[in-house]
Write a protein that binds this DNA or RNA. Structure first.
Lengths: 219, 219
DNA sequence: TGCCACCTAAGACCAAGGTCTAATACCGAC
DNA sequence: GTCGGTATTAGACCTTGGTCTTAGGTGGCA
């Protein structure tokens, strides 16, 4: 039996993806998550996933940080990034940060099935156009990746809220702990990231953002 | 006589560009600047530029903020962005933020001349490949653009140093003013940007960054 | 069983950030 | 010449951020 994790915040697409997967893997045991925290909750109950399908834009991922972090949590599990974007640069970076494959949401069911089978067999799979544009990069972990993977789960969560511009007091309230605890986490985060305060942390982490296109204003 | 401003931090390229310009505009009166602050210094002495050639990556520009800011300072002056990138998305955003044209550094002298003449005549000029990919966007100022243009010159300078992760005390030292002054500027900046503290300011401004590609680590 | 990593927290303490008021000065515009 | 915007600063005041020390609780693991 195949155990599959679908992590996507779009319920409709999650359902569609589930259908597509079950068409090919009739005996599949499918788990779903609509956020990183939701994912962590069920992660402990049923660890042995055979493949993880991750939406890059899921809440809590904060650019590529979520991918980097998940990659570390599930070192051995094939990890496929699913995304609405078809930007070659984004695909390239997803692979760089440890994804075993990249499937655009526009792909056909057949393509998705083929991709997943290849990836579960240990191969890498990319859309054809991205494969052509892909330089033969070797596995290479940036300094920032290593720093992010060294964060504990709670520290990662706090980091995410920091990246939302939230104040310590607010974060403490949201996580239902004391402000002293948040401060302790912050100090630890700064040390691990090699920065001196939250402003510098934001600057360092923002380089892992996915989005360059901020052309549109509010319409 | 044609008065031209070349704003580029690369001396060699600046010289080359100067040569190219003089070949076509023999009577040109050319001013140079290697940074935004340098540009502002000579801006007051000789305002009536006929065209401004701006390197996107010049020190002090901080992504597209510098373009947005310059565009406001010289409303009527044709503004051409010169850049080493040929990324269509960057070109698109440069135009979106008010540039009248975009010339890649790889362009030939003839192409540059043609482009400048077109732009000084009031037309828009883009590389052919970008023109094809360019959707017919109408002039549209994002909320953030307007906010940045409302900054005073000194506030813009302080904002830039904030984006470097510098502390108030350090900024005060660099600008040779008191920390109280910097704090006053910060308060004004936060108000204008519609944020509550420096962390949120960084987050808001980082969306105007040029650079998505942070794939490489330190080798 | 003991060790270790993690999460939590309090208290003390200091640094940094941020607001407000009030004041002086320069400069360009009308 | 006056008015308004900008730049500057001081001082008082308060909030937020950040470090250090110490310490209790949990859960995994050998």
């Amino acid at each position: 039996m195949t155990t599959i994790l679908i992590a996507d915040d779009h319920p409709l697409f999650r359902a569609a993806l589930k259908q597509a997967v079950m068409a090919s893997f009739t005996d599949a045991n499918i788990h779903e998550a609509d956020s990183l925290s939701g994912l962590e909750e069920l992660g402990h109950k049923s660890l042995p996933f055979d493949v993880i399908l991750l939406d890059l834009h899921m809440p809590g991922t904060h650019g590529f940080s979520g991918l980097i972090y998940l990659r570390e949590q599930y070192r051995k599990v094939p990890l496929v990034v699913i995304s609405a974007t078809e930007d070659v640069d984004v695909i390239q970076r997803a692979i760089h940060f440890g994804a075993d494959g990249f499937i655009p949401k526009s792909a056909s069911v057949e393509t998705m099935t083929e991709a997943m089978k290849k990836i579960m067999a240990g191969e890498r799979w990319l859309p054809e156009y991205a494969r052509r544009a892909m330089p033969p990069t070797l596995p290479d972990h940036s300094a920032m990746s290593e720093r992010i993977t060294s964060l504990t789960p709670q520290q990662f969560r706090v980091m995410g809220m920091l990246m939302e511009g939230m104040q310590n007091k607010v974060i403490a309230y949201e996580l239902d702990v004391s402000e002293a605890t948040i401060k302790a986490h912050m100090t630890a985060i700064f040390r691990k990231l090699g920065v001196r305060n939250r402003t510098q942390a934001v600057l360092a982490l923002k380089d892992l953002a996915i989005e360059p296109p901020s052309v549109d204003s509010n319409p």
